[in-house]
Design a protein around this nucleic acid. Structure first.
Lengths: 164, 164
DNA sequence: CCGGGATTGTTGCGTCGCAACATGTTTCTG
DNA sequence: CAGAAACATGTTGCGACGCAACAATCCCGG
């Protein structure tokens, strides 16, 4: 199993670089443009495993240049989400860089730690199948699923506090 | 299995009345107060199987009396949610009257039809168990789960359009 | 090198959600 | 039954979220 939940002491620079590299590959291959604005937004999200609000992203960008308007951020986010590079956490009105290359359409379960705010992605195909079966049993045709679980991550449950 | 997804031609008045009756029983038994304000909010939500935004509730109440302030609605909703009478649909920023008496803590899956807007509740214990297992396998302790599936309900998929 | 599509900037606004404080209303208690 | 304590609601105000509509700019293919 892949590293579902990021350890407090994992190599951040490494996984952030991976996200950017993956984005460049994907855009180059699909004729899409990873513009400076989009790249900046993705970099900020990748620098954290916590979901960030749109206005937090604005604040971060304001520190290194002119303060972008909200709509600018939302447009970049729309692009990144459409290309599977970023996820929206509906229960938090926040956004998160995707650290997996999950197959498009696959269901992703988000594990949100209410102590440290870190979010892990669990590519649980069995959950997806169970959900699909439950939906089908009542004649429902699923298109998009949102599965978000709030709780305590292993590190925080063990009493360790981390703040990456 | 109970009527998971409301049929377009089911008896609305009946199920709305059931919701209110259940609320009265629950409040009477728990020493809670189902005040006129809370009752009104619940009635409006029960009159629809579609999730309503807080400001839609305000508009509805404005039609039969003085227009309540947003905070008034949010307080009533907080109470109703805390007592399991109303659910929040995070992916829509909207609220929905609960039509089941599911055991507290049980996971509820919401099936949201993107055609007619109707929402069904699937008390799928198997999904809950699969999710719990997936979380446990990475050392995550779940507290609260949000499972929301967008798609097409059986009635809309069959070409029938309804608007209750 | 120029036209058209994509991207970004500018302005503006509607919705969501609640904090803080004042004012009733119930209920409990002496 | 008066007063306190707990609870509920009204009032004011504001920050966060999310995007529409239009203008300006950039980039690519022909």
């Amino acid at each position: 199993m892949a590293a579902i939940f990021p350890s407090p002491d994992h190599n951040h620079a490494r996984c952030a670089a991976d996200v950017i590299a993956h984005a460049e590959r994907l855009c180059a291959g699909g004729g899409q443009r990873l513009t400076p604005m989009r790249r900046s937004v993705l970099e900020i999200l990748a620098a954290s495993h916590k979901p960030l609000g749109a206005y937090e992203i604005i604040d971060a960008l304001a520190g290194v240049g002119p303060r972008p308007a909200p709509i600018t951020i939302y447009r970049a986010l729309d692009f990144l989400i459409a290309n599977g590079l970023v996820h929206r956490i509906a229960s938090r009105n926040a956004f998160l860089a995707c650290v997996h290359n999950h197959a498009s359409g696959a269901l992703v379960t988000f594990l949100i730690c209410e102590s440290c705010g870190t979010v892990g992605e669990a590519p649980s195909t069995d959950v997806g199948q169970t959900l699909a079966a439950a939906a089908k049993s009542v004649g429902f045709t699923p298109k998009m699923s949102v599965v978000e679980i709030t709780g305590l991550c292993a590190h925080c449950a063990a009493g360790r506090v981390h703040s990456n």
